[in-house]
Design a protein around this nucleic acid. Structure first.
Lengths: 227, 227
DNA sequence: ATTAAGCTGTAAGCTAATTTAAAACTTATT
DNA sequence: AATAAGTTTTAAATTAGCTTACAGCTTAAT
């Protein structure tokens, strides 16, 4: 999951960034509206956290412009305590949720998770497709009820694919979401990762939960109804 | 467990703080509503004790604002005897339990324990998983019925993990709830602590009650049904 | 006051899991 | 058949977590 944070208070920005990275998100940051606007236009985000009180270009303005240009990832706005009324303006501009500063880090995480889940069309913390299920709370993957051991990266990959089950996800998109740095064009980490995950999720090579669309990317199959 | 106390009478605040620290809680304190509100927004609390008769910002106000901004830790309110009717207002604002002053320290401790337990989904004061049981009242740990000697920190760690049994808890989250100070990123206290606890709870290395999820955290196993 | 015992945190080395990189190999597409 | 895209295998590099030993403190006992 790739998240953008736009926040001008450096210490807060750092804390939030560290926390989200720890949770396994790929995090992009901006300390002003202009940079933030650009990053949001340029990169495929899963969510954005935007402080409304920004220098140069206001948070409201950034959100409006994103929405005007068709960007539809969920946006969580942060408002200073004295300015909580701003939230209305923010929500009208196209934000999805708000949080009043100072806030509880866990609250931010919870809301972000909820937002991301909602946009993926999932409502509970258990993603399940056919015989494969992923519990985001216990971070447990099960295959036909049996737990499957997955590594941190495998988990992230699976979560992203299941969250977007049925959609084709390009390799570039995947690398961008799983890793901070931009892709090395001469690396096959992703293919290796997909291979390992496939072997774990489908030992007998019969279900094929992760489809390959040559030249386009991967797709998590929706309809493997053997579970 | 991390607890916040908001109380303007200094002697009472001190007594309660000392008592809770003695019980092994990490305690944050505030003598007025404004500070208390802020601390509650900022730190990951497991519970809060709020006196309703506060200077500047009232207890009711503090609770309302916390709840409005999504804070969901349990809250115990304290009311003066003459003002016991205030409790209704407090509970409506989002508090979970109340205590009329003057009270017995024992009673406060018992109610706090109950509140914290309930948030983890436990209804009785005995947390038990497989052959491991933890009595939050007596602060006693038993393994297959036999008492196990654990130190203060080992107890805190075990209590937190058992309360959130089945969920993955990151190391940062654990440190935040076990210690007052913020994490040293280059310390391995937690690993050492987990190691010691494991040796005590599972001397033969066969049950593995505390699972490690590399890169993600620890998880107390729900289903070790050998007890 | 002195000593002993136990608790907690630090540091270092170690182990093993995980990730990366590279090369050989397979499959689709034109 | 030629080429591009994807897969698999292996080995090397990296890193997270475990263990152990020890030192500083605190608490209890003499």
């Amino acid at each position: 999951m790739r998240i953008l944070i736009i926040e001008d208070e450096a210490p807060l920005l750092e804390r939030v960034t560290a926390q989200l990275r720890e949770q396994g998100y790929a995090v992009d940051t901006a300390a002003d509206g202009r940079t933030g606007l650009y990053l949001g236009q340029e990169y495929p985000l899963d969510a954005a956290v935007v402080d409304l009180g920004l220098p140069d270009l206001s948070g409201i303005e950034v959100i409006s412009r994103w929405r005007a240009s068709g960007r539809c990832f969920p946006i969580l706005i942060l408002t200073a305590r004295g300015r909580w009324q701003d939230k209305v303006e923010g929500l009208e501009a196209g934000a999805d949720d708000y949080l009043v500063k100072p806030f509880h880090m866990e609250e931010l995480l919870a809301r972000l998770r909820a937002l991301i889940r909602r946009t993926g069309g999932w409502t509970q913390s258990l993603l399940s497709c056919g015989s494969i299920a992923l519990d985001t709370g216990a971070q447990l993957v099960t295959l036909a009820g049996q737990p499957v051991e997955v590594t941190a990266y495998e988990y992230k990959l699976l979560e992203y694919l299941m969250l977007h089950a049925g959609m084709v996800i390009s390799k570039t998109t995947l690398t961008e979401h799983l890793y901070q740095e931009d892709e090395d064009r001469d690396s096959n980490v992703l293919e290796v990762l997909v291979g390992r995950l496939r072997r774990k999720l489908d030992p007998d090579r019969t279900l094929n939960p992760i489809e390959t669309l040559r030249g386009r990317g991967y797709r998590f199959a929706l309809d493997r109804s053997s579970g």
